[in-house]
Design a protein around this nucleic acid. Structure first.
Length: 490
RNA sequence: GCCCCCAUCGUCUAGCGGCCUAGGACUCCGCCCUUUCAAGGCGGCAAUCGCGGGUUCGAAUCCCGCUGGGGGCACCA
């Protein structure tokens, strides 16, 4: 454990609180995962809360997608999902209490006045903070109201003063109140802002530890002030580092697969996805890189979370995914593959026998895939008649004479083979390979292409075996015929 | 401009003052496996621990400064 860090062992109440304004990003998923792991590790409670107070941007589709993505990742929640849009009365009651205690005040400044205040502060090399006037006369207020203006409610930040976050990961982080503006707590239409709602909910829901992205750290002192003004003790905070793209900027869509949805569509399985996500900013020791779900729960420690941001590497995830899939029992892999092909519509697109063909193909691709979306590249040929890819045909055409020899030689052995099975095919072709004295690549590649039509595909022996003697030899003869045409033409 | 955070191979990281002539993983490069291709095995390249000062017998590890990177600065969350 890093120095001066305390681990959390008592049962926690944590929450994941996304705003439903898009899909669940890798960064958000990692935050959810850490919260979930902390809850499961300590035998605590994981609360899910949708922060949908921005009615413009929040959508039911996005909410459904986030819930679905979490379920897919196996991150089950114990309470919720709660929606802030359904808790308006709770926030209004909180604002009333803040008004009663004088912790907040009505602010009448116009947008222009606010802008001028911030600009002046900037010019003065001070933080661009806003402090509303608190000494309007009764006449002023009456006039504003007559004009139809409605005030926002701002939190009266104590100046001078200081709020210190005792961050579990970063240690004490101090904020001088001179740099914290009198933030808005209730909009002029009476709706609560994020800082109010989040603070009230964390208190009301009995949240003991808030684990969230570092991008929220400047909000934390504000929320702590609200909690204290409400007479509550703030929870323990842990601000985790951000996840970056390869350009070291915050990970976003332009970096490629950046959401859980994308990973799933790419054919990554949940287990390796969790594994990879957990390893972004967290490690168990100096060697272990693969963890089962239960190992993750058992070994996770918030104290071992790194302070520095991490660049997300899709390639590494793919490698982990490939290894994981290879380690799966045959039948389990087959079911995963079928489920994926069904979900993506691949099966539906390839006719009535597609599922049967895909099931037969499963053992041929298991060893070769790093993600399920590569299935078509390897096994697509099985779903159609022989149809050469241009690059594949070029490989055969590059040395027509040799290709004819290889395919012809292979055909001779296959045609007469008895019994016809995988081992038989393998022995026969290897024997032929010895006779010809060629290297494996020179001899086997043309045969593989003659049967699959693809430059990259499933293995030669397996491909021939899965086709059966009749179909395999038919394809080889077809190839031979085409090669002969080419030969004659030349 | 202001506030906050961060800084070990290209990337993810181990490292808690001597075990570090810095360990592991991914990438990349070789070789092996006479089953090709994006499998597997073995091996290799790769960090003067961002820079400069301290503290100490001894610093990647502690302190200060600098530089660099990131985040935040709404009636968004």
């Amino acid at each position: 454990m890093p120095p001066n860090r305390i681990d959390v062992t008592e049962p926690v109440r944590v929450r994941f609180a996304p705003s439903p304004t898009g899909s669940l990003h890798v960064g958000g998923a990692r935050t959810a995962l850490f919260n979930w792991l902390l809850a499961r590790h300590t035998g605590g409670v994981f609360v899910l809360r949708l922060e949908d107070t921005d009615r413009e941007r929040s959508t039911p589709e996005s909410e459904a997608e986030i819930l679905r993505a979490m379920s897919w990742l196996g991150l089950d929640w114990d309470e919720g999902p709660f929606r802030q849009s359904e808790r308006d009365d709770v926030y209004r009651a909180a604002v009333d209490r803040l008004r009663a205690s004088g912790a907040v005040y009505p602010a009448w400044e116009t947008d222009e006045e606010l802008e001028a205040q911030r600009a002046a502060a900037r010019a003065d090399k001070r933080a661009p903070v806003v402090r509303g006037r608190r000494d309007w006369s009764a006449e002023d207020v009456a006039r504003f109201e007559a004009e139809g203006r409605r005030p926002v409610w701002r939190f009266a930040v104590d100046v001078p003063g200081e709020t210190v976050i005792d961050d579990l990961i970063r240690g004490p982080v101090r904020f001088d109140h001179a740099n914290v503006e009198d933030f808005v707590v209730a909009r002029s239409d009476g709706t609560p802002t994020y800082n109010l709602a989040a603070a009230v909910d964390d208190v009301e829901m009995g949240i003991s530890h808030v684990v969230r992205g570092e991008d929220h750290i400047s909000n934390t002192p504000k929320q702590m002030m609200v909690m204290r003004a409400l007479g509550a003790e703030p929870p323990v905070y842990a601000h985790i580092p951000l996840i970056l793209g390869s350009d070291k900027k915050r990970l976003s869509k332009r970096h490629g697969a950046a959401s859980v949805e994308d990973l799933e569509a790419d054919g990554v399985l949940a287990q390796p996805a969790r594994n990879a996500l957990a390893l972004l900013g967290w490690s168990y020791d100096d060697k272990t890189t693969t963890f089962t779900r239960d190992e993750l729960i058992e070994r996770f420690s918030i104290a071992r979370v790194s302070k520095s941001p991490a660049v997300f590497d899709m390639k590494k995830l793919e490698v982990m995914n490939g290894r994981y899939m290879r380690s799966l029992p045959k039948d389990v892999f087959e079911e995963e593959l079928i489920a994926y092909l069904r979900k993506t519509g691949y099966l539906a697109q390839h006719g009535p026998h597609a599922e049967a063909v895909a099931r037969r193909s499963a053992p041929l691709v298991q060893r070769k895939l790093s993600k399920l979306s590569e299935f078509d590249v390897l096994a697509g040929w099985m779903f159609r008649d022989l149809d050469f890819e241009p690059e594949a045909w070029e490989l055969l055409a590059a040395d027509v004479k040799h290709s004819i020899q290889a395919v012809g030689g292979g055909l001779g052995r296959i045609d007469a083979l008895e019994p016809f099975d995988l081992d038989g095919v393998k022995d026969a072709l290897q024997d032929q390979l010895h006779i010809l004295g060629e290297n494996a690549r020179e001899f086997l590649e043309p045969i593989r292409i003659s049967v699959t039509g693809q430059r990259v595909s499933t293995g030669v022996y397996e491909s021939i075996a899965v086709l059966g003697r009749e179909e395999a030899t038919r394809r080889m003869r077809l190839t031979l015929a085409r090669l002969s045409e080419l030969w004659a033409a030349a």
